[in-house]
Design a protein around this nucleic acid. Structure first.
Lengths: 348, 348
DNA sequence: TCCCGAAGTTCGATTTAAATG
DNA sequence: GCATTTAAATCGAACTTCGGG
């Protein structure tokens, strides 16, 4: 391995000078162009690459950000990860990816490993998670800039980026209502899930504004569960149950895209065509939604943007720490967007 | 930050002894249990965590593996990443995740960054990629254990884990044939894609074995393209085109799941019900396949296993290097598996 | 005082060589 | 020579201090 001393020898200067030149440190102002050129040429010739371990040991910086995902297989993650990756890339940071599989023990072990690696910030993708108090305590005392995506904390010290669920719920019902639907079945999310209640609030608010009466017999709740597949299954079973009870409805507002897919399958099995005989709207806009048959009308969470935004937040935090300012956690709520596709249709 | 010297002071021994004890180094044999206990207690009391930078600088090890994905948004990646992550976790390695967005320049920059971090091995998830010769050269000279998933190289120095495409193609056609289908439309993959030709070979082989004549007018080719969405669109357009030409077929064998979804949409738009009037089979078994309506019959690539296998390969490589043995690259070909769901049906 | 460059110290752990009784 | 412990060198880069012109 070629070290800075080799470059020093090759160029005829000391390692100090080489360091100053190659890092373009403040002192480089004083160094004549000729010297710089000779050093740069020597470095190039030898193919010198600074040893990051040594550099990090001295500077106490890793240029690394930890990314903790609660469940990689959740389709919600993919675009968020893309947004995170892309923004980190531009800032020359590298992400260490960990997947806690929704297990507390794994969370703790990974957090410890990441902290040992001196990550400069942490981003947690807390999709579909029933938060554990202990984990939060761990996060808080980690004392590095931290941002959570998809889940707001009471804890003020941790930043968060979430979608405005209330606006989203409002948007979804508004869309169905505008298409003329009045008998609307609604699948609400699991009680313990943080998204469930604001989303429901948005729905109720719109109903009140539009003077639309929601039929309690058409409102069902998803059971507690912890993964996307069970969300799909819940959507399927709940819809099947509604159909068995001969409830009549012309549209279905599902908690998320996965449960919407479940609903579509149940309707389709029962011989009810979507959207001809029943409209279905989801929430999230996962990758599958655009390629489903029929393609799914849904309320999009701008996931790539959310990932990018979380990186922005923690990068600010890192800079604050570097400049010895107090890092100010920010809580961002991004606007969802209605994406109209084939699964909803005007009531005729 | 508490250092080894703090522990030394607290325990009353030198930092040398502390290091020996806490790492359970060979010399620890000679150290009396009482000493060990005092040191361990001191370390615990102070909450000592060794500085990984210093450790790595000395040991020249990072306990980190680079993971390069060519396109994160490809649904093919998700489970592979899960397999990689899970296996690394068990071995106490951490992955640095990079996504090259199918761009050569990004590949080069990331490769450099990863090498600078002294990753101990590299895993490349080369889904859906038209390989560039230059990139391979870069990989070869990197001289760390490297494994490619999804794409075999002529280069013998780089390990690979791929699915047996020939067996898979064989399996797919065999399934349709067993259901009584004889007029079978086939969507072949893009020529430049490495998977295309072996998969087609498997199809042809089965046809020969079963004395089944493939109608050339029912065989279409996907154009060159570089992402999963265009695969979906190709499937859609090619099927639409076949229908417009009034070709008659009772089953469709798509190149992959994405093109199968496109085909299903085209059939469905044309009023042809799947599987009642036309069976469709895909390849891959991405997450969407199980939740599609109808759920998709497909040839599964055991993606999680492939990820785990790639980790196994490079971990062997790392050990070989450590023990100064010659690392032997291995080329694994895993067996695909037919997954029968709703989208195929016996011809009546 | 300004410019240029070098010697020496530091970061924190591991390891070699050596010193005790 | 044996069991036990440690001083000192090392890894590679960055920064502080200093000296000569």
């Amino acid at each position: 391995m070629v070290t800075i001393r080799d470059v020093a020898k090759e160029s005829g200067f000391s390692s100090t000078t080489v360091s100053i030149v190659l890092n373009n440190a403040p002192l480089a102002r004083y160094i004549p162009a000729a010297t710089k050129k000779r050093i740069e040429r020597a470095a190039e010739k030898l193919g010198y690459r600074p040893n990051q371990f040594a550099r990090s040991l001295r500077s106490k910086r890793s240029h690394t950000v930890g990314v903790m995902v609660f469940d990689m297989t959740d389709p919600f993650c993919t675009l968020i990860l893309r947004g995170i990756e892309n923004t980190l890339y531009q800032a020359s940071y590298l992400p260490i990816l960990t997947d806690v599989h929704n297990e507390g023990s794994r969370f703790e072990r990974y957090l410890e490993m990441l902290l040992d690696r001196r990550i400069e910030a942490l981003i947690v993708v807390a999709n579909w998670v029933f938060l554990d108090i202990n984990l939060l305590a761990d996060l808080e005392k980690s004392s590095i800039p931290t941002a959570m995506i998809g889940c707001e904390l009471k804890t003020d010290s941790i930043s968060s980026v979430i979608v405005d669920n209330e606006v989203g719920g409002h948007l979804a019902l508004e869309h169905l209502h505008a298409l003329g639907h009045r008998k609307i079945a609604i699948i609400r999310g699991p009680k313990a899930l943080v998204d469930s209640s604001p989303r429901w609030r948005g729905i109720r608010n719109f109903a009140k504004e539009a003077d639309l009466e929601l039929d309690a017999r058409l409102i069902v709740d998803m059971p507690e569960s912890s993964d996307p597949i069970s969300s799909f299954e819940s959507g399927y079973k709940l819809t099947e149950e509604l159909l068995r009870q001969k409830r009549s409805f012309t549209a279905m507002l599902a908690f998320d895209d996965m449960s919407a897919f479940g609903a579509i399958r149940a309707l389709s099995r029962a011989g009810i065509r979507v959207p001809d005989q029943c409209s279905v709207i989801g929430f999230d806009d996962v990758a599958t939604s655009a390629i489903y048959t029929p393609s799914l009308t849904t309320v999009r969470q701008p996931m790539e943007t959310m990932g990018a935004s979380a990186v922005g937040v923690v990068l600010d935090g890192i800079n604050a720490v570097l400049e010895k300012r107090e890092p100010t956690p920010s809580h961002r709520k991004v606007a969802p967007e209605l994406v109209v596709r084939e699964s909803t249709r005007r009531l005729v």
